[in-house]
Computed example of a mutant assay.
Amino acid sequence: MTETTRTTRLFALLVPLFMFLYGVFRLIDGRDGGHGPGPAWNIGHSFFFAAFLLLGALVVELRSLVHVDTARRAAVAGAAMVAGVFGAACFLWVILGDLFPRFDDAAPLPGPLELVGPLAFQLGILTLLVMLVVSRPRQLPAWSPALVFVAFLLIAVNLDLIPVAALALLAGFAPLVRTRTGSLRASESAS
C-alpha cells in the first residue's frame, strides 16, 4: 500500500471523527443557551478547523483516484477539485474568524463567498465521489456519495445535528477507509 493510500484512508477516517467532536463540543458550548467564546467553543472549532484542512486535502486525494480517460472527464475532475479546495478554504477562513475575532475584524470573508464557498465545497467533493462511483462501482458504491449528501443536508437543517451528520459522513466515507485505494490505481493502470 502506498503512502497516498494510507493518507486517503486516514483522512476519510479522521474527518468524520473531527466533525463529530466539533458537534459534541458545540452542543456542550450551547448548554447555556448561546454559542460563543469559551473553552468548549475553542476546542470544538479547533476540531472543525482540522476537519476542513483534511477535507481540502481529501478532495485532492479523491481527484487522484478518479479515472480520467477523456479530456472532458479530466476537466470536470479538475474543476471539481478546485471547487472543493476553494470551498474548504472559505470554511477555514470563517473558522479562523470564529476562533480569532481580530482576524475576522481585519479580514472578514466577503458575504457572497460565505454562500458560494460551502456550495462549491459540496459540489466539488460530491462530483468527485460520483465520478469514482461511475469509474469504480465495485470499490465505491452509489450509496457512498448519497450518504455524504445526507450528512450535508443534516447540517443545513440544524447545526445541532452535526454529530449525527458526522456519523453519516463516516458511513459515506467507509468504503474509502476499507478499500485499498492502491487497488483503484492498479486497476486504472491495467485498463
Rank of each mutant, 00 (worst) to 15 (best):
D32R: 11
A79L: 14
L176V: 03
L53H: 00
S64D: 12
E61S: 11
E61C: 11
A79F: 09
G33V: 11
A89K: 08
R102T: 14
G172K: 13
V66Q: 10
I95H: 10
C90K: 02
A83C: 06
A186L: 14
P175Y: 08
F100S: 12
H45Y: 03
R102S: 15
L109D: 05
F47E: 03
A88W: 06
V164I: 15
E188C: 09
V68T: 15
V134L: 12
F18G: 03
P110I: 00
D105K: 13
L99R: 13
I125H: 07
M131P: 02
A40V: 03
D32A: 12
G124H: 01
L62K: 05
F20Y: 12
C90W: 00
S144Y: 01
F49S: 14
F49A: 15
V59Q: 04
F100A: 15
A146I: 11
R178I: 11
G87S: 08
R102N: 12
P101N: 11
L153V: 15
L96R: 14
R6C: 00
L176S: 02
A88F: 08
M131A: 13
L62S: 02
W41C: 05
V148L: 11
P163V: 02
P37I: 09
A80S: 05
L147S: 13
A168L: 08
I28K: 14
F103L: 14
A156H: 09
D160P: 05
G97V: 03
F48Y: 14
A12P: 07
L154E: 03
A83Y: 00
